[in-house]
């Protein structure tokens, strides 16, 4: 099975599984079968079965993950296109972001602590709502496990992408701008990519939530954890 460890084979496999998962979702119409989620699950099972280590896979995966940073830069385009609208609503946006950021960090820490999670896990969970590079940075500086944070961040993003709009509708958040903003705040770039599919203005507000919560969490999380005695 040595040929399976070839970077190009692993890359082709990743593209192929994702394509298959997307076709399968289209065919079934089930939103739960998120192609990102399905691809991750299939790859993990496959790697475990063939005994390929994550280190080997990540050499190939690195070529894909690399595009995450340029993709975040590209979000500047929808942000620019909606700047006028956003400027008019600056106060509501800023205030909801500030509360969202504090609630996101405090609630996850309180619940995890109450349920007996270890200190390392709690720190790794704290920046869960923000985009991977920021979350890993925050986690590292506080003494958590950055790659656990990365994995949790992706899971949170998937949860937001799959269930986010449903949750918002159930709780009567109907305004499309508020919906976009919340999705970006709670589930960063994965949620934002889902919001983009719904429409450019949802996406623009989601990218705004992604940016503001990212910056606020990077600035506030260390203080919040200190105050909470973690």
């Amino acid at each position: 099975m040595e040929i399976l460890q070839n970077n190009l084979v692993l890359l082709a496999l990743t593209f192929g599984i994702f394509y298959g998962a997307r076709q399968f979702q289209k065919w079934t119409g089930w939103i739960v079968l998120n192609p990102i989620l399905v691809t991750i699950a299939v790859l993990i099972v496959l790697l475990k079965l063939t005994g390929i280590s994550y280190e080997t896979y990540s050499q190939a995966g690195g070529y894909i993950e690399f595009w995450l940073k340029p993709a975040i830069v590209a979000l500047g385009v929808p942000l620019y296109q909606n700047l006028g609208q956003i400027r008019r609503q600056f106060l509501p946006i800023f205030f909801s972001q500030l509360v969202g950021c504090v609630i996101g960090v405090v609630s996850v820490v309180v619940i995890a602590q109450a349920m007996g999670a270890s200190r390392e896990t709690i720190i790794s969970l704290a920046p869960k709502s923000v985009t991977t590079p920021i979350a890993m940075e925050v986690c590292q500086s506080l003494g958590g496990i950055p790659s656990l944070t990365a994995a949790i961040v992706v899971s949170v993003g998937l949860f937001g992408a799959v269930f986010g709009f449903k949750v918002l509708e159930v709780w009567h958040v109907k305004n499309p701008y508020s919906q976009g903003l919340s999705i970006g705040t709670a589930s960063h770039a994965v949620g934002t990519s889902r919001a983009m599919e719904k429409g450019a203005s949802y996406g623009a507000y989601a990218s705004l939530g992604l940016i503001l919560n990212g910056v606020l969490t990077a600035l506030l999380a260390p203080f919040i954890l200190k105050i909470m005695g973690i």
Binding site: I40, Y54, S58, G61, A71, T132, A151, S193, M196
Partner: peptide
């Protein structure tokens, strides 16, 4: 192009779950 495929770029960091 980058924005419409952003979700795909999250697959490798997601696979890191297998470590934990």
């Amino acid at each position: 192009f980058l924005i419409s495929n952003m979700g795909f770029f999250f697959v490798p960091p997601g696979v890191a779950l297998m470590l934990y």
